[in-house]
Design a protein around this nucleic acid. Structure first.
Length: 237
DNA sequence: GCGACAG
DNA sequence: ATCTTGTCGC
């Protein structure tokens, strides 16, 4: 772990650690997490990040889309295409997706006030899912909005849009919110990343939702990486 | 040993 | 995440 000058990423570490080393990195970065609302300034821009994977060529297609807040006008698209250099291991997703995401963040011209990631925030075995991890590396306010559970217990929230129930860890501490973003549709799992409180994380995600299950910023990022993949890997070959 | 397991 | 065919509904 080292401090860095001349870049937005304030902390650096290996992106190809052995399992035990990766766990150590997460445990270390976890101590730097800020779990209350500490935005650098009032919200003016919000970004969404997502990634697509092409098996045959082992390629990752990542994108970060920056939008104005609250109008959600698209301001910038950051992209990165590169080989996957780390396998998917539950609990170590950041080591697979992190390199592409950090490369994009380093190049953005519009630095977002908030980043929403497709994955967990603190709802993670060591309290440092993808969103929390990226937040600490850049001291960037982040929220994790995952489509399924990694850890934690919960009761299913009501079927109406906006219904929520707490996500709780084994020690009984609250780690996130199971949020119904659309009537009768499977809820999302929201947890704070960095510099955002538990309640605010769910509130913000709900504000970012329109008529679909996922918040607009990650939904559009998802669309974008799929387009990006099709450009590089046309259906036929 | 078994079950669980973001993307 | 991807792969993969059909199916159901607005």
């Amino acid at each position: 772990m080292a401090a860095t000058a001349g870049s937005r990423q304030l902390v650096r570490h290996s992106w190809s650690p052995a399992y035990r080393e990766a766990v150590g990195i997460q445990e270390d970065l976890r101590r730097r997490l800020v779990l209350t609302d500490r935005f650098h300034r009032p919200l003016r821009t919000v970004a969404g990040a997502d990634l697509s994977y092409e098996r045959r060529r082992n390629l990752l297609f990542a994108a970060v889309l920056v939008f104005s807040w609250p109008e959600l006008r698209l301001l910038e698209i950051g992209e990165e295409v590169r080989p996957a250099a780390f396998p998917y291991i539950p609990g170590l997703l950041t080591f697979r997706e992190g390199p592409a995401m950090t490369a994009i963040l380093e190049r953005l011209r519009h630095w977002p006030d908030l980043l929403v990631c497709d994955g967990q925030g603190i709802a993670h075995p060591r309290g440092l899912g993808l969103a929390a991890h990226l937040g600490v590396l850049f001291d960037l306010p982040t929220i994790g909005c995952a489509k399924s559970r990694l850890i934690g217990k919960y009761t299913m929230p009501g079927v109406a849009k906006g219904c929520r129930s707490p996500l709780v860890d084994d020690a009984g501490r609250r780690i996130g919110t199971v949020l119904r973003t659309r009537r009768d549709v499977k809820p999302v799992f929201v947890s704070p990343g960095h510099r955002v409180g538990l309640e605010s994380a769910a509130d913000l995600v709900l504000q970012l939702v329109s008529r679909y299950r996922l918040p607009e910023v990650t939904r559009l990022a998802h669309h974008h990486v799929n387009r990006l993949r099709l450009e590089h890997c046309p259906p036929a070959g």
